[in-house]
Every structure is written in C-alpha cells, then in structure tokens.
Amino acid sequence: MSRTNSHKISVCISCKHKGTACQPGYELIAKLREAIDSAGDAIPEDFEISGVACMAGCDRPCTVGYHSSRKATYLFGDIDPDTDIEDLVSFARQYAHLHDGWCSSFDRPGKLKKSTLARVPASLITLEPNTERMQ
C-alpha cells in the first residue's frame, strides 16, 4: 500500500498548564512524531503532525485533533506528553483503518475514551438540485 499524507494530527502549541508558562504542545509534537515514526508499517498511512495556534481547548491542555478528507474529525483534550503517547499512536492506527473515521468512545484506546472534546462528521457536499425550490 502506498503511504500518503492524507491523515493529519494537529497539536495545540498555545495550550498552557494553569499558572505556569509550560506549553506541552511542543514536547507532545516531538514525542508523537518519534512514536509514529517508530511504529513504521504498523500504521498503514503517514500522518502529518503539526502545531496549530489554538483549537479552543484552553481549559483542557494539551489539545490534539485527528482529521482526514472524508472522515470524521476528532478533538481530544487533557493530553499529557509523558503518559498519553501510546494511546495517540493506537488511535492513529485505528483512525487510518476507519473508512469514514467514525468510532464510538468505547472503541477508542485508553484515555481517549473519556477525553474527547468533539467529533465532527465529515462534510459532504450534495450536487443534487433541490426540486422543491425550483418549482
């Protein structure tokens, strides 16, 4: 199977632990890239991992999003770069195999079962004319 960069993981680099200057996003990106690279062929698709300015999960740092064309998007909060890398890699493996990206919270690995901030369905554009409006 050819590997593509159609899957993306976005990590908030603005998130801070309350009362500190600690921004765990940078550390999380580095650890996640290393873990995804180490997984090799266990993950059938490449994942582009990048930092983003803000994903509005400020009360639950660090915030991580998974997205791909024609798949549901997931946003997770309360992610710790020291303890949650394995769950993030397991979800990447799972997400790559989901044709529409849809899974229940019970199917998500470890901490991601309870740290979901949002699941956004894939956007579908219909090209069929609305005959009711045309009359």
Rank of each mutant, 00 (worst) to 15 (best):
W102G: 01
G101V: 09
D84I: 08
P121D: 11
G25A: 08
E45F: 00
D78A: 12
I9N: 04
A21F: 10
R60Y: 11
T73S: 14
R3L: 03
R60F: 15
S123E: 08
A21T: 14
T131N: 12
G25H: 10
Y26D: 10
E132F: 09
K31N: 14
P24A: 11
R3F: 00
M1Q: 04
I125H: 04
D41Y: 06
S2A: 08
E132G: 09
K114P: 01
S38F: 07
L124A: 05
L127E: 02
P129T: 12
M134Y: 12
S50F: 09
D82Q: 12
T83Y: 07
R133V: 13
Y95S: 02
S69A: 11
S123G: 07
P129F: 02
K111G: 01
A118H: 11
T4K: 00
I125P: 00
M134V: 12
C58N: 09
A21R: 14
W102Y: 13
T126F: 00
K16D: 05
Y74V: 08
P44R: 07
P81A: 09
T63I: 07
T131R: 14
S69H: 04
A35H: 04
K71E: 01
E132D: 14
T73E: 11
I43F: 01
I29D: 10
P129V: 12
R119C: 15
N5P: 00
L98D: 05
L127P: 00
I43H: 01
R70P: 00
Q23I: 06
S115P: 02
G51I: 02
D78Q: 14
Y74F: 15
F47H: 01
A30Q: 13
T116I: 15
H99W: 03
A53E: 13
H7E: 03
K18P: 10
R3A: 00
R33E: 15
A56T: 12
S38W: 02
S68I: 01
A56Q: 13
C62M: 04
